Simulated scan of single mutants.
Amino acid sequence: MENNEAEKKREMKAKEHNLQNREISDSLKRNNIRIIGVPEEEEREIGLEGLWEQIIAEKLPNLGKDTDIKIQKAQRTPITFNKNQPSTRHIIVKFTKYSGKERIMKAAREKKSLTYNGRQIRFAADLSTETWQARKEWQDTFSVLNQKNMQPRILSPARLSFKIEGEIKSFPDKQKLKESVTTKPALREILRGTLSGEKR
């Protein structure tokens, strides 16, 4: 029993430590946008900052004139080799202010689809791998709630929020949602299969 208790404490501390690391990593990346899909040869003549200015001038011209939106730096992600998923390295753009990043992201979301030189590109928040994984784990649940018009949202960094019985509920992880579902039969029926891992 003592060994079990010690093991549980170690697991809890490891979980807390991982959560703290994720929060630190995400806070360091708070002002960053990740641009996905721009080939590396595009920046050879004009550099990454010049490429960023070109993309904004073409795709979001109203924001290109905004003197309050300034970037601190732009860089490519480090080289990682994955033979199963060859892709160009992402561009990370760091803004001097969080508000500048948010305005760019809002404008990009409103555009819905962005292309540069005939290629599809995408803007995304620059988050830690752990946060992206946590968000990905909500995918099935989010899809089911969306089909039922329950207005699901992924809140920063990886909380699921949705509307039920006129109230907005928010959950940090699937365990908390599972605990809540036990007291709500209608919600349990809607999410049957998405929380236990079984197929619907």
Score class of each variant (00 low, 15 high):
residue 2 E to I: 11
residue 2 E to L: 12
residue 2 E to M: 11
residue 6 A to I: 12
residue 9 K to N: 06
residue 9 K to S: 02
residue 10 R to C: 00
residue 11 E to S: 14
residue 11 E to Y: 09
residue 13 K to C: 08
residue 13 K to I: 10
residue 19 L to K: 13
residue 23 E to V: 04
residue 23 E to I: 00
residue 24 I to Q: 10
residue 24 I to T: 11
residue 25 S to Y: 01
residue 27 S to P: 07
residue 30 R to F: 14
residue 30 R to T: 10
residue 30 R to P: 02
residue 30 R to N: 09
residue 31 N to K: 00
residue 33 I to H: 12
residue 34 R to K: 06
residue 35 I to M: 12
residue 37 G to E: 13
residue 37 G to M: 08
residue 39 P to F: 08
residue 41 E to R: 01
residue 47 G to N: 05
residue 48 L to T: 15
residue 52 W to Q: 15
residue 55 I to Y: 03
residue 56 I to K: 01
residue 57 A to C: 04
residue 58 E to G: 05
residue 59 K to I: 05
residue 59 K to T: 05
residue 62 N to W: 11
residue 65 K to F: 11
residue 67 T to S: 02
residue 71 I to L: 10
residue 71 I to G: 09
residue 74 A to E: 10
residue 77 T to A: 03
residue 79 I to M: 07
residue 82 N to D: 13
residue 84 N to T: 10
residue 87 S to T: 03
residue 88 T to K: 11
residue 92 I to R: 13
residue 93 V to S: 15
residue 97 K to V: 09
residue 97 K to Q: 14
residue 99 S to I: 00
residue 101 K to Y: 06
residue 102 E to Q: 14
residue 104 I to S: 08
residue 110 E to I: 03
residue 115 T to D: 15
residue 117 N to Y: 01
residue 117 N to E: 14
residue 120 Q to K: 08
residue 128 S to A: 09
residue 131 T to G: 08
residue 133 Q to K: 13
residue 134 A to V: 05
residue 134 A to Y: 02
residue 135 R to M: 07
residue 137 E to S: 03
residue 140 D to P: 15
residue 144 V to E: 10
residue 144 V to P: 13
residue 146 N to L: 12
residue 146 N to S: 15
residue 148 K to Q: 07
residue 149 N to E: 04
residue 150 M to V: 09
residue 155 L to G: 10
residue 157 P to M: 05
residue 159 R to G: 00
residue 160 L to G: 07
residue 164 I to F: 08
residue 172 P to H: 07
residue 173 D to I: 04
residue 173 D to Q: 06
residue 179 E to T: 13
residue 180 S to L: 14
residue 182 T to V: 13
residue 184 K to W: 06
residue 196 S to P: 05
residue 197 G to Q: 03
